[in-house]
Design a protein around this nucleic acid. Sequence first.
DNA 1: GTTGACCTTGTAGCGACTACAGGGTCTTTA
DNA 2: TAAAGACCCTGTAGTCGCTACAAGGTCAAC
Lengths: 143, 143
Amino acid sequence: MRIGELGWATGVDVETIRYYEKAGLLPVPARQANGYRDYGDKHLERLAFIRHCRVLDLPLVEIKRLLELLSEPSAACDDVDHLIEGQLERVRTRIRSLRALERQLCVLRSCCAAPQTAAECGILHELVTSAHHEAIAINRAGR
Amino acid sequence: MRIGELGWATGVDVETIRYYEKAGLLPVPARQANGYRDYGDKHLERLAFIRHCRVLDLPLVEIKRLLELLSEPSAACDDVDHLIEGQLERVRTRIRSLRALERQLCVLRSCCAAPQTAAECGILHELVTSAHHEAIAINRAGR
DNA sequence: GTTGACCTTGTAGCGACTACAGGGTCTTTA
DNA sequence: TAAAGACCCTGTAGTCGCTACAAGGTCAAC
């Protein structure tokens, strides 16, 4: 099948497919007589795998490693554990960080009482004040 | 003060400060006789503001808008509400997405029973299977 | 004078795409 | 047959927000 069909089958943009090929994630495919790329089931399965890993937010370099392990059936699979554990930890850290950010934004939003001018804006006032306090704190902490 | 001192006072890297200046977030500063940038309190406060907004994960383009509003005291501040609401919504969406991702990764991690080879790896097996099912689902949904 | 910290401008790179530009191929329709 | 539109190709550049050089200048301390 041609690249558009592969993209249609996997939900991956054709330009992204070409990018993955260039990045070494997808093997160079055969070509039709007119120069068009010609993909088979192997590419389809491999690209679906890559996409699934991307949905899991795994970086390409780690996806590459997983693909290597898939092609080395006798290799030890502790790398796989480590990759997934690492990713899980990153996700958890990010959730905590975003939770804190959500709380801050909620506080900030509550500074807004009613439509008014920028000069009277509670949110802007709070942003400026918080920034000022943070700069002072940095100075005290010796950054 | 020179750029290093400004960076020290705000916790922002000197290269990032120069980047912000180039991006139009910071006004072009005065220069000392030796060509070094010379910053005053105005720049300090402004950069602290920018940094604080970055901590809130606001994109630079929105920070720029907020800075504009700060310099137009008579402008209506509903833009500020919109920016903060928008950011809050983005953060919440991202949290939900990461939560789902966390659950997936936990399921995936539980596929790992013991150290074994890649051929027997429960995680890899699950990744491949899930990718396959997703590709089929995409076909059914007409993507 | 030397050394090391700091400064300058300009360019390039990171990660993961995404969007052209310029040109070729193929099918359908008038 | 020609035109139009969809699809394809390679190569380059851009997005976002930094971050890291390269090459060279400035300054203070030793």
